[in-house]
Amino acid sequence: MRKGQYTFVTGFLLVPVALYLVFVIWPYVQTFGYSLTDWKGQSQDFSFVGFDNYAALFEDDVFLGAVWHNILFLVFVPVVTILLALFFAFMVNAGGRSRAGGVAGVAGSKFYKVVYFFPQVLSLAILAVLFGAVYRSDAGGMLNGLLLKLGLIDADQPVEWLNEPDFVLWALVAVVVWHGVGFYLVLFSAAMQSIPRDVYEAALIDGAGRAQSFFKITLPLLWDSVQTAWVYLGIVAMDMFVLVSTMTSGDYGGGPDHHSEVMSTVMMRNFLYFGKSGYACAMGVVMLLLTLIVSVVTLRATRRERLEF
């Protein structure tokens, strides 16, 4: 490097690093500090309680239940979203009938690509309202209306989707998946288009079917994108705050009777509603640790040799 270049680069980095320290790192440190106190959130008098908050966390059934729900989300949201997105992306890009040796998507694939992306442009708040109408618990709900027309349920006994302990989590998974598939479809499509045609053509000549060309060519060459998608979706699954707090019952959601509780909703309720702010900070610290662990594990577990093409 030429002389003076380091000073130049450092000069540019100084501001962002300072901002990062002040607005990201310092709040983390503060949160950890507060998590060791019995702070109530309204004034600055509190006392130090050591690790009592953390000890209490491990006996709090509601919080442990919430951790379990986050783990369920962590498993099902990425798996279902990525599988669906991969399937659709493959069909849209390389799933069509081969015409004269060429490789193309199914008929109307351009149209599908646009349509699948629609959900992604909706904000989470709109999504919550939309699916509120879908899952509405009386005959006015879309699902209930449909089931009624089909004669599968009785008008006096509609399914209270979001008020059923056995359904509520899956109803939420469906919303996240519906929202996410379009985006990852586009992501995977872009990656698939960068795979050279001749690789597919060679496989076709060798007699590979759709399934074989997908598993033997597409997937291995797409691995980087899948890995990224997994990390992003993992972070979505660790959060879930907006949907759970707006769609389910209870203060900051989590109902019925804590069956859809996630860590962030328990935290917010304790922080703002119950005035147990120190305790909520301890939850925040645990959430941070778990999210870090999930990211690291995902990146490690999916690490593979990069294929050059």
Binding site: D138, W161, N163
Partner: peptide, 8 residues
Amino acid sequence: MPGTNGLE
């Protein structure tokens, strides 16, 4: 009222 338990 049918469904009232889950309504806004």
